[in-house]
């Protein structure tokens, strides 16, 4: 397994996660270096979302551990994990539909005493579309706008590590390209990103490194370029037909 080129920010070591009798993760080990974008790839049900939920404290591993910045965080409830600077944009965006766009952004800063006006401005600069809709109920936004709002809301929590779960889901290709561009910008500003994606080609083009999950286990890891060149990845996730060798 490839190691992070920089000091690791997140270490996930041998975690097993169960939903009752079902073992969603068997033994997952990977790491994310400070400042990296790391992509988790895999088919539906491979355990990508479960892995992210375990990092953000929504789920607890039955074995193994999660360490952030060198300290164990598994077992810390989700509402305290965010205080460490781990912000999770869940699958399906989950904006608060009956709150306004502005209120959603303020919710993102809930962990702070006051909303940081500068951060608020910065998010609106990143997503100008949201500025036009500040007073609008979030439930009335389009899918792409809701995704932007969900990411903007997470940024209001001033993340060191941003967990993005399927940001491209259900969005038009043009909007997906826009959102991936913004993820790159966010990363350039110093935020480490753990990205879960089904859209493997685009995710690997963006990510420094990636891991492939299959039925609850990491089966492959490498830099974005390595994985893009890997026959198995090409066959399974990029839809290319490769002659059996």
């Amino acid at each position: 397994m490839t190691e992070a080129a920089r000091p690791t920010l997140l270490d996930v070591v041998g975690i097993e996660v169960r939903y009752g009798a079902i073992r969603a993760l068997k033994s997952v080990t990977f790491n994310v270096g400070e400042g990296e974008i790391v992509a988790l790839l895999g088919a539906n049900g491979a355990g990508k979302t479960t892995t992210q939920k375990t990092v953000s404290g929504m789920l607890r591993p039955t074995t193994g551990y999660v360490a952030f910045d060198g300290a164990r965080i598994d077992g810390i409830p989700a509402h305290d994990v965010i205080r460490l600077g781990i912000c999770h944009v869940p699958e399906g965006r989950h904006v608060f539909p009956r709150m306004t766009v502005a209120e959603n952004l303020e919710m993102g800063a809930f962990r702070f005493r006051d909303v940081d006006k500068k951060e608020f401005e910065r998010v609106l600069e990143l997503f100008p579309r949201l500025r036009e809709r500040l007073k609008q109920q979030a439930g009335t936004l389009s899918g792409g706008e809701q995704q932007m709002l969900a990411i903007g809301r997470a940024l209001m929590g001033k993340p060191r590590l941003l967990l993005l779960d399927e940001p491209s889901m259900g969005l038009a290709p043009l909007v997906v390209a826009q959102i991936f561009e913004i993820i790159k910008e966010i990363n350039a500003s110093g935020v480490t990103v753990l990205l879960v994606e089904q859209n493997a080609a685009q995710a690997l083009a963006l990510a420094h490194r990636g891991y492939v999950l299959e039925t609850g286990e990491i089966v492959l890891g490498g830099t974005g370029q390595e994985l893009l060149a890997d026959d198995r990845v090409r066959a399974a996730y990029l839809g290319e037909e490769i002659a059996a060798s």
């Binding site: 989700a78 509402h79 608060f96 539909p97 209120e103 809930f110």
Partner: peptide
């Protein structure tokens, strides 16, 4: 108020409210 915002967030979507740092 923050308490009110928290109540509304939990009412709309409790798991996501927890991700915002709200103790459900």
């Amino acid at each position: 108020t923050k308490l009110g915002m928290g109540i509304r967030a939990v009412a709309e979507d409790a798991p996501t409210a927890a991700l915002m740092g709200i103790d459900i």
